[in-house]
Design a binder for these strands. Structure first.
Lengths: 134, 134
DNA sequence: TATTATCCTAGTTATCCGATAGGAATTATA
DNA sequence: TATAATTCCTATCGGATAACTAGGATAATA
């Protein structure tokens, strides 16, 4: 199950994408999408620092997409918001970590299944961009 | 990312499946798979109550599969150990719950993506049985 | 009856999720 | 230039959940 952070983040990105070429202030997204204002603030900050969003301070300011929606892939967004796409770190492409309970990954009975799950999810996320959520 | 409970549970089931037709005591699984004994105990208890395992108390006792490994589907195991397969409750087949922030699911921008993720995972789990992990 | 198991309820501890607080910095505009 | 509107940033907090533990009851075997 994905976190609310991820859910809110995706909804916010979609909202901004729909209002492209305009500044979208936090308050507007928060109200429209029923997202706690301060929580959303921290999420948008993260998305900006991760290179998805640009921002402008002050009156008339807000957030905007730095790239075309069709160039924003769910793989990248999900990794920032939710973390690893893989179900276990030992099969993660971007967040690899060794298991402490496993001696050898190649002989681990879960390995094959975990890779299948990872790849199934990757396939979906690689073939979906923000444009598809608009 | 799946919980350790799920990971341990799957490993334990596999271990038992490999030693089919024999009683397998907790202690043996715990040591072989590097799983904390008491934690594993609670997991096996759950798997028994959920109908995957049978048990026998006392000397020479232990756990055994109630069905053929090839009849134990990952969909069922995962739902017990990990909970919903869907990434959000509002697209879950077995654990449905309405979103509190969404008015209408049919117009939610995430809906389609979430269903795709759910179905991708379902596809893997429906086509994998415990036999495949052996 | 001693030993080896599971059964069961109830903890404990640590981490993380979701959300909030409060002010600093920046910008537009009246 | 004053004011309002906005993002920026750090810190914090309560509650839930994950991971694990304790300790005895119960049952089977030899």
């Amino acid at each position: 199950m994905i976190s609310k952070k991820t859910k809110y983040g995706l909804k916010a990105l979609t909202y901004i994408a729909r209002n492209d070429k305009q500044m979208v202030p936090i308050a507007l997204i928060a109200e429209s999408e029923n997202i706690p204002h301060k929580f959303l603030e921290s999420i948008l900050l993260l998305l900006r620092k991760s290179g998805f969003l640009g921002s402008k301070k002050g009156k008339g300011g807000g957030y905007y997409l730095l790239k075309e929606a069709s160039d924003i892939y769910m793989t990248d967004v999900m990794r920032i918001l939710e973390g690893p796409i893989a179900p276990v770190a030992c099969v993660s492409l971007n967040y690899y970590e060794k298991c402490d309970d496993c001696e050898d990954e190649t002989t681990c009975s879960l390995n094959k299944l975990m890779i299948q799950v990872r790849d199934a999810n990757l396939h979906v996320f690689r073939n979906t961009t923000l444009e598809d959520l608009k």
